[in-house]
Amino acid sequence: MDKAASYQKSIKASTKNLSDIRKFVSKYAEEHGFTQDQISDIRLAVDEAATNIIKHGYKNDDTQTLTLKLEFDDEKLNVTLTDQGVSFDLKKYKSPDIRQQIEKRKRGGMGIRLMKNLMDDVSYNVQNQKNVLKMSKNRN
């Protein structure tokens, strides 16, 4: 147990598949000894990341595919989500003011805030016309 291991899953871009994504992540995080609190954090962060790709990157086009990869080692879990949809500029991202959004009857922008809060590291790059989102969660 806790030896390096990786798992990959290709998912069609539909929010229908979010519950399967959560099950996939929870199952392997549990098998690799993460605590229930850590698993909750990872599950929500991955759900938020996949939701953003499906809704904003692929505009709910379920013919498109995203790839989810989990890599475990002694220290942490690395999560990588790859897609070929509309890119996102993480540097221009501003955390939303919830009060102002409520007044404008707006929503959104909260997923990234949660990912940054729940995970130890979040990075986003565009490589060879692919969007690559990496997040990691330390064991300790």
Binding site: L44, T51, Q101, I102
Partner: peptide, 9 residues
């Protein structure tokens, strides 16, 4: 998930 909170917002 945040989409749920979004409905209340």
């Amino acid at each position: 998930a945040s989409a749920g909170l979004g409905v209340f917002m």
